[in-house]
Design a protein around this nucleic acid. Structure first.
Lengths: 245, 245
DNA sequence: CGTCAATAGATTTCCGAAAATCTGTTTGCT
DNA sequence: AGCAAACAGATTTTCGGAAATCTATTGACG
């Protein structure tokens, strides 16, 4: 068993298969593997240090999760991003989270409240960007951020719905990572999250749903803007390389 | 390339991988592979006539879809069924379908109306049980039934949501198949579907959502009942085999 | 010249066997 | 007996290479 591995996270590898699945998912969500990037097996074998089988299996699973795409006999690519997909994703996410949140507010008990407070506290002590790596979101912040939003809906009591929610959150996170890479003006998340938590704890359903929807919409707007900007840059660059016609 | 294959469906196999994925999904949903059944590779290789690789890849994908479960180094099983999971699934399904249906009713045009009428007609000309195989639902009916419900939400305009809906529908279908196997009293689906279609075509949103929710709830009740009955039978049988203590 | 077939190289897909892991049973010690 | 270690058979997981497929280039022919 190869105890060493490039990633700091990886951790407990029960099987190579599970290990590479975790790593690749993280790499794609963080855009270390860029959207639409072709995933050649030789490259991947080298990158993750194993044979084709476990990698291929992981890719099949990621395809079901919508993070990679497979074309018959032509291999895998990281899933493409687009404005339409972004809007679709975020709209759907708002609806799903609304349901989960409503149920969670109905059912959440003291335990849930305590976990939520705890998650918020941990999040508030993280900085969004690690000064040493300003081109990407801090891994720790990202983890605590996800944990906070998970804590909000945790009491929902519908595992199926929560799984769906988690998957959509992950997809959205990829767009956020992409957005950060192109421009860095951040917004005050701590304040937004605090409001959200307070509304949830006071069981003000309407206000919580409103705030959560607005939170997502604000993310959508920001990400959509930088996506458009990135596209313009890419087009300009292409035009320079192959000028006029 | 082995042109022959056991299943009548299977059809166009672009790769063995895609072919076995389709077949296994169908086999699990139709309960030809029973819930909680252990999936040994030797058996599967024999059944589908290929090596371990494509099968393993398909299984990984099915795990993401929630149709099989994997335990590290202990292999795959068909996903278990339970009353809790059934309730969870159906509740979630109602919420998801409600959103999709609302959007579809908002956006659907003439094309959508025509497709819906067409789908209903095809469904109404199918019988639910094939006389020659009374222990299972007719494959053709099942296909047209799925197509009808898909047609209802087809104009929804949110691909992500539709994918989620389709996956939940499939999972529910497995419970229905299971229910049919244990007892056969069927209900008048044609009437229910006709009502549903009429409400949708007249753009009566509230009534359509109401009918759709009731349709799912009715299925839930029926399936839950036969699930409980099957459980009692299984327990009685176990008690007989290993009497008292 | 332009179109199409043929070929070579690159890449994915798949198989068969080796390595790792699990499960149940036997064996040896207290 | 009772418990644990060790072994054997069964099964999963992984590898490395063979087969199938795709892509780009070359060459032939109209």
């Amino acid at each position: 068993m190869p105890s060493s591995s490039s990633s700091l996270v990886a951790a407990k590898a029960q099987t190579l298969n599970a290990s590479v699945l975790t790593q690749m998912r993280a790499d794609i969500v963080a855009c270390r593997l860029m959207p639409n990037e072709r995933l050649r097996f030789e490259t991947l074998r080298e990158r993750y240090g194993m044979g084709t089988s476990p990698i291929r299996e992981a890719l099949m699973r990621l395809e079901a999760e919508g993070l990679v795409e497979l074309e018959h006999n032509k291999g895998f690519r990281v899933a493409e991003v687009s404005h339409e997909n972004l809007v679709d994703l975020m709209r759907t996410r708002i609806e799903i989270e609304t349901i989960a949140l409503r149920w969670s507010l109905e059912k959440g008990g003291v335990e849930w409240e305590a976990d939520l407070l705890s998650a918020f506290h941990r999040l508030s002590r993280q900085t969004k960007i690690d000064p040493s790596k300003p081109e990407a979101i801090s891994e720790a912040w990202s983890r605590e951020h996800a944990a906070f939003h998970t804590a909000l809906v945790a009491a929902c009591g519908a595992p199926t719905l929560l799984t769906i929610r988690a998957r959509l959150f992950e997809q959205a996170d990829r767009y956020v990572a992409l957005s950060i890479m192109s421009d860095a003006p951040l917004r005050d998340d701590v304040g937004e999250h605090k409001q959200l938590m307070r509304a949830a704890l006071s069981r003000d359903v309407d206000r919580t749903l409103e705030l959560n929807g607005a939170h997502i919409t604000r993310t959508l707007d920001k990400v959509a803007a930088s996506l458009a900007a990135a596209k313009r840059v890419a087009q300009a660059r292409a035009a320079t390389r192959r000028p006029a016609k």
